[in-house]
Design a protein around this nucleic acid. Structure first.
Length: 486
RNA sequence: GGCGGCGUAGCCAAGUGGUUAAGGCAGAGGUCUGCAAAACCUCUAUCCCCGGUUCGAAUCCGGGCGCCGCCUCCA
C-alpha cells in the first residue's frame, strides 16, 4: 500500500511520489518569535512532526527545514512595548520556542534558518523578480504585482477579481492592485534595516519562506506544510514569488495544510481571554497527553480544545503508559513452568495484524486517529491475556508479550508518544524505597523477627546497598569502588 | 458576497458504495478481588431531514435545515 496525501493545490488525495527517489524535502512555516507559541501553533508543529516521523518510518531520508522569523513588525512592536531591542525580543522567544518544542517531543528541524541570516538571498530574489517584471517600486518599498502572475489564486482557488467585491481590505492607493504585497519595506530610523538596491529596509514576510525553502531544498521540493490560515495569502504569495523567480513550476509538489484549533468552540484570541501558550499548558500537563489529544482527530479537521477533552485523554494515555510498564515488568521476570500454557494465539495473531492496520491508516493521508485505534486494540488484547486468572508467564508467553511491548513502543514512537519518561525511576524515589524497607526492617527487629530483618538486609546488600545498625538507628550506603558513604 | 469544510452512540472521533459502522472517554450490569488499584466481558447508533441514482448508500447526486473556518497579521 502506498502513501497518499491530500494536496491542497489539487484538492485531492494523491499518491505520494517524491522528487528524488528515497529522499523527501519538507518545509514547514515556523514561528515569528515575538511571543510564546500557542497551542494552535503546537497543533500544526505536532502534525508535521508526525508526518515527518512516519516518512522516516517508511524509510525515506527526510530533510526538514523550518524558518525562524526574527524580523517582523510584531517583534518591533513588542520590543517598543517592553523597551527592549528587537533582537533581544527575538532571541528570547526563539529560545522559548526551542524549549517548548523539545518538551512537546518534536524533533528538531534539520535546518532552522533565521530570516535575518538570509537577507542576501532574499534581495537577490527580489531583484530578479524586478528584472522579470513581477515587481515594482513605490518610494522605498517593493511590491509584487499579482497581475503579472497569471496563476495567482491557484492554491486558494480564488478568483482575484471576485474577491475585490467583498474585500474588506483597506486599499493602499500606491499599489497597482489591492492584493499586491510587499517584498521589501523601507525602514524608518530606529527600525531594523539592511542596505539594498532600494535603500535601507527589511524583507516582507512572504519572501522569507520562499527564499529559505528554495535555498535549502531547491525548487520543486516535496512537501510544504502549514495551517489552513496560511493558504491565503501567505502560501499563495510564496508560489507567486518562487515560480516568478524561477520561471518554472511547480514550486512545491504537495501542499499540506492542518485544520484550525479552537478553544471551547471559539477561535483563540488574546482579547477573548482564551489564549493558551504551550509554555503555561506544559507547566501542568504531560506533553504526551497534549500530543495524544491532537492525534485523536484528523489533522485536516478543526479541533476543539477543552479541559474535558484533556481529562479524557489523560485517562487514555494513562492506560497506554500502564500497559507499557506492565509489559516492562513482565519481560524482566523469569518465565514459569505451567502444566497448561495460556492461550496466546489471539495475541500472536494481533501482532501480525496491528502493523498493517497502522500503516494502512497512516498511508491514507496520515490518519492518526485510525492508526491509534489499532494500537489500542493491541493494548486491549495484551490486557485481556495478562489479566486473566489462568495467565502464567511461560517463556513463550513472555516472548509474545515482549514483542507486543516492542510493537507498542515502536508504533507509539512513530506518533511521537514517549513512554520511557514514566518509567524512569529517579534517585529520590529510589532512596525513598530504601528508607521504606528499613522502616519495615526496624518493625521486624522490634518484634525480634530476625529472619525478616536479615532477609531485608541481605536483599539490599545484593543490590549493593549496605545497611549498618547503630545505637541510634540504621544507616545505609551504596557500595561503590571508593566505598563512599552517602 | 466569494472559497473551503462539517453534521456518525451521552461526549469526542474514524469510516466515504456491500464488513458485526474502528477507537477513546463517560454510564449500566457482570467477572476478578483480603483492602486498594488496574484490567477484562456484555449492553447503549433507524449514520441531521427529504428526494434521487443503484441489486445495494453513512458513503454518490439534488434540495433543505443547522454549524464552522478562511477571505485582515494569524499555525
Amino acid at each position: 500500500m502506498s502513501l497518499r496525501a491530500y494536496n491542497t493545490l489539487t484538492g485531492r488525495k494523491e499518491d505520494f511520489v517524491e522528487r528524488d527517489r528515497g529522499r523527501v524535502g519538507m518545509y514547514v512555516c515556523g514561528p515569528t518569535v515575538h511571543d510564546y507559541i500557542h497551542i494552535g501553533n503546537a497543533r500544526t508543529f505536532l502534525t508535521f512532526d508526525v508526518i515527518r516521523r512516519y516518512l522516516l518510518y517508511k524509510g525515506y531520508q527526510v530533510l526538514f527545514v523550518q524558518n525562524i522569523t526574527d524580523v517582523e513588525d510584531k517583534i518591533i512592536n513588542k520590543a517598543r512595548q517592553l523597551g527592549l531591542g528587537w533582537q533581544e525580543v527575538a532571541q528570547k522567544f526563539e529560545r522559548e520556542f526551542y524549549q517548548d518544542m523539545e518538551k512537546l517531543g518534536i524533533m528538531p528541524a534539520d535546518v532552522q534558518p533565521r530570516a535575518t541570516e538570509q537577507i542576501d538571498f532574499m534581495i537577490k530574489m527580489i531583484s530578479t523578480l524586478e528584472e522579470k517584471g513581477y515587481a515594482y517600486r513605490v518610494d522605498g518599498d517593493v511590491y509584487f504585482s499579482i497581475s503579472q502572475f497569471k496563476e495567482y489564486g491557484q492554491l486558494s482557488k480564488r478568483n482575484v477579481d471576485e474577491m475585490m467585491a467583498g474585500s474588506r481590505v483597506e486599499v493602499d492607493e500606491r499599489k497597482r492592485h489591492p492584493l499586491d504585497f510587499a517584498l521589501w519595506k523601507s525602514s524608518k530610523a530606529g527600525e531594523p534595516g539592511w542596505d539594498s538596491p532600494w535603500g535601507r529596509g527589511r524583507p516582507g514576510w512572504h519572501i522569507e519562506c520562499s527564499a529559505m525553502s528554495l535555498n535549502y531544498l531547491g525548487f520543486g521540493f516535496d512537501i510544504h506544510g502549514g495551517a489552513q490560515d496560511l493558504i491565503f495569502p501567505h502560501h499563495e504569495n510564496e508560489i507567486a514569488q518562487a515560480e516568478g523567480y524561477k520561471q518554472e513550476k511547480p514550486f512545491v509538489r504537495y501542499w499540506l495544510h492542518g485544520g484550525m484549533l479552537q478553544i471551547n468552540e471559539e477561535e483563540m484570541h488574546k482579547s477573548l481571554g482564551n489564549f493558551v501558550t504551550v509554555h503555561e499548558l506544559l507547566e501542568k500537563e504531560n506533553p504526551n497527553v497534549v500530543r495524544l489529544l491532537m492525534l485523536g482527530s484528523h489533522y485536516r479537521s478543526g479541533l476543539n480544545f477543552t479541559e474535558e477533552k484533556l481529562e479524557e485523554v489523560r485517562k487514555a494515555y494513562g492506560r497506554m503508559a500502564e500497559v507499557v510498564s506492565r509489559l516492562d515488568f513482565l519481560s524482566r521476570q523469569a518465565p514459569k513452568e505451567a502444566p497448561r500454557s495460556p492461550d496466546i494465539s489471539t495475541l500472536e495473531r494481533a501482532l501480525y495484524e496491528t502493523r498493517p492496520a497502522f500503516e494502512e491508516a497512516m498511508d491514507d493521508d496520515f490518519n492518526t486517529a485510525r492508526a491509534l485505534s489499532a494500537v489500542f486494540e493491541l493494548i486491549r488484547l495484551v490486557n485481556s491475556l495478562t489479566q486473566s486468572s489462568e495467565f502464567v508467564l511461560t517463556s513463550r508467553a513472555r516472548e509474545v508479550l515482549t514483542q507486543a511491548r516492542e510493537l507498542i513502543m515502536e508504533l507509539g514512537g512513530v506518533l511521537g508518544l514517549r513512554f520511557e519518561e514514566g518509567r524512569a525511576v529517579d534517585q529520590s524515589r529510589l532512596f525513598a524505597l530504601v528508607d521504606l524497607l528499613l522502616e519495615i526492617r526496624e518493625e521486624a527487629r522490634s518484634r525480634r523477627d530476625w529472619q525478616m530483618a536479615d532477609r531485608i538486609r541481605y536483599g539490599l546488600s545484593r543490590q549493593g546497598i549496605m545497611v549498618e545498625d547503630r545505637p541510634d538507628g540504621p544507616i545505609w550506603k551504596i557500595k561503590s569502588d571508593a566505598d563512599t558513604a552517602l
